[in-house]
Amino acid sequence: MSAFVQQLLVLIVAAVAAMIWLGINALVWVYCERKFAGHIQRRPGPFEVGPHGALQPLIDGLKLMGKQLLTPDNADAILYWLAPILSMLPVLLLFLPIPYGPVLTGMDVNLGLLLILAFSSFNGLAVLLAGWSSNNKWGLLGAARAVSQTVAYEIPLLLVVLAVTFMTGTLSLTEITNMQAGHIGNWFIWKQPLAFLIFLVAMFGETNRAPFDLAEAESELTAGFHTEYSSMGFGLFFMAEYGYMVVMCSVCSVLFLGGYHGPFPGVDGWWWMLLKTFALLSFMVWVRWTYPRVRFDQLLNINWKWLLPLATFNLLATALILKL
């Protein structure tokens, strides 16, 4: 009984910690993204609120909270307001099984990877609901795009994750991390370079980030699925987007970059995990501010004609090599 209570307490603490972690990440990365964008474009980015504009995302959040919550005419109000919540909630859950440090794991489940992959698909559903229920033609187009995109990009993602789990024989992220202990040569990126590349590309598709941000494609669909959302309705989508980015980058660093293990023995710790995740996030931001957006049919073509065959080939090759 006491063990159960103890586990429950750990879970609650972890859930609260995950919430805080998500909040901090959203704030930090909104700020970092705008600063990155600014410096790439050779302007300072936010600068007025706080030192170097550091409090800008906080103020933006407050501003969003102060805005009126508008439900469009003839929108399905329940689904309309359910969508942002449905987009946000799973993100909290996704942080639990990720090992941020040797003891910094919210909930060490042996099916952690599966949990993450399963719950991250909720985002597609939330986006579909948002676009569908807001009674807006742009929203509808955005929702239709989002669904085909998330469904399509999940498949190569699953296939490369499967290739990694073939090697590890476990779905627990902690164990996958521990198998990469030692030095940099043990990281799975060297054993699965193709899988890493595919994961990287699919990550952009899965998180709706530019150049694959088709669901909100600003210059085509005005704002896509969240055209009608105001106030924190939009704020939640926005936070969820950054939440998914952090989760995806964390998973990527666990699967391929050795998680909290350092590049040489004896320096393991949560800082490595943080460093790797943030490096990947910076890369995502860098890519966003460099490329134009792909067209929708091209997006699917990249997936079905390139990523999927390559991921399948990678999986078969892994299986074959393991068998031999």
Binding site: A37, I40, R42, A210, P211, D213, E218, W289, Y291, P292
Partner: peptide, 16 residues
């Protein structure tokens, strides 16, 4: 035009 196609940065370089 590049902004229409979804890239935000080139317009800043052009405006430079």
């Amino acid at each position: 035009y590049i902004l229409d196609l979804g890239a935000f940065t080139p317009i800043m370089y052009a405006f430079d």
